[in-house]
Design a protein around this nucleic acid. Sequence first.
DNA 1: CTGAAAGCGCTAACAA
DNA 2: TTGTTAGCGCTTTCAG
Lengths: 331, 331
Amino acid sequence: MKTTIYDVAREAGVSITTVSKVINNTGKISEKTKKKVFKSMEQLNYVPSQVATALTGKKTDTIGLLVPDVSNPFYAAMVRQIEDEAHLRGMSVIVCSTDYDSEKESKYVELLKRKQVDGFIVSSGFSKVELLDQLIEDGIPIIMLAQDNPDKINAVSVDDFKGGYLATSHLLSYGHRNIAIISEQVMSGDLRIYGYRAAHDERKIPINEENIFKTRASLENGKRLVKKLFEKGNNPTAVFACNDLLAVGVIQGAREMGKRIPEDLSVIGFDDTILATITVPGLTTVSQPIGDMARKTLETLVRQIKGEYEGVERTLFMPTLVVRGTTSRLT
Amino acid sequence: MKTTIYDVAREAGVSITTVSKVINNTGKISEKTKKKVFKSMEQLNYVPSQVATALTGKKTDTIGLLVPDVSNPFYAAMVRQIEDEAHLRGMSVIVCSTDYDSEKESKYVELLKRKQVDGFIVSSGFSKVELLDQLIEDGIPIIMLAQDNPDKINAVSVDDFKGGYLATSHLLSYGHRNIAIISEQVMSGDLRIYGYRAAHDERKIPINEENIFKTRASLENGKRLVKKLFEKGNNPTAVFACNDLLAVGVIQGAREMGKRIPEDLSVIGFDDTILATITVPGLTTVSQPIGDMARKTLETLVRQIKGEYEGVERTLFMPTLVVRGTTSRLT
DNA sequence: CTGAAAGCGCTAACAA
DNA sequence: TTGTTAGCGCTTTCAG
């Protein structure tokens, strides 16, 4: 049978209150009793039950993390950072992959709510934002990660507009004038497209609307779309793929059509995942400071949980351009 | 304030017992009362508290998953499958990345124990197996995933010996006679080395012990070791890297030394992660049936949790060779 | 078919 | 400094 606080109390010859106090280091307990209690705890291999503690009104020290797919390298990296930051604060995280599927989204939100998580981290790719209203009503802390949203929810994200601008400016400065963009059909994707537009507008370079695509992130979609691009005769000299996976797909698709990278086609990605370091040549991409974002996310969420929070706060981190080998000057 | 079973009972004009019964569909409750209760639950937006339920002796419906690092593509894929299988069974999973660090291992085991997880899934790369003894004593279900272990713990894994044999045989059949192997310093790594040996022995081909390396999985280590291999004059014609990440490192390192892949050096990996499809040429590798493994793992674990389990059970899945472009016949 | 009451393991007043 | 006691929200006998 599991050993409880009662067992420890009996063993140490004190009351459960005393044991509770030494565990939580509350109130005043003499060193002697403390020692006694600790010894008994050790002997009985006692581990306090979180669930009992949680029921007493305290926190579960668990947070729910909703991502589209943990197996996607970008989210995998994000989950890892979040996990570390959470552990640093004595919390653990339950990860749920939603696959951009609103049914799963509501299912998991409900699940996590039932589990009484102390807070939610909702990452980019969450489609049914209305689902969160209920949580807000219930006063459950939420923070959006890498997903800007219209409501009054706390958010930590990268400046997607800036990222799109950065990538596009890089390409434009290399002389490219016919640049296709393949974006994800999520809000941050739209912002990147606006950045793409802004970079063009700034230089008064016209945009061919046929060069703008929205799709879901996958190798296949990257491949498919780049082929379509050439088959339709758009013949871009550069492609800005809004994430690394798509970028790799673009590279592969282009190569299958006999294009050389970057000689015949420059490609730039987004996220700077492990994939970017693995392609040959290395993928030029826009990097998000995932570690900083995770830190800020947890920090803010914890503040909310502790109730120290007031007003909506949204932090924007600046992306940076990482130039590797898949982009070159147009000659 | 959170709405409780009491609120629902009051609203529906029944006792909490009745509400509890309709929630769990236990006992006999008239359709009429059921309807009433459901309506009240809906109105009040009632969500039963898992923690209260758990305290009553039931399960937490949460399992702990220990992996070395979620951001590693192989584990990321694994976590994803486990997560899906768990959700299918109404459970959620808390992921902990141990970094092969035994301090973290014990910290997380303790953490999860405190959280009263219903069971543990311990994946390959768990170093301090003794830590699990305590759990076994406490009767907490554990299952080892992709990590064979000496004790009497349930396990689901791939036949690493066979995998090593498969990879090596492939290389030998291509005429290679000077094959280096870079393995991880974990048990499954050793088994792969035995497979490597067996393939050689079968053909009575001698092994140069200097060609056997053990390291941690990282791009850098792959790079570093392949360079060392050539600097030391081992000059292998093929390298069997015991996971894809190392393999990619090997490819990159070799290229930096001017070797062409596969003309000058054949490289084979293990795991068949997303990385294998991204290198150019595609990485020849050994594939593990992760989906099947995850399914079997959860199935077995759930059986243990339900107490339907008897005796130790270990399932071995067969790996398969996936030939892509990084291996070629020795000419 | 429905309800009253006793816990599950722990924390938090309030006493002593 | 230490102990008594009343819950936290739910399940589960055991009575009606």
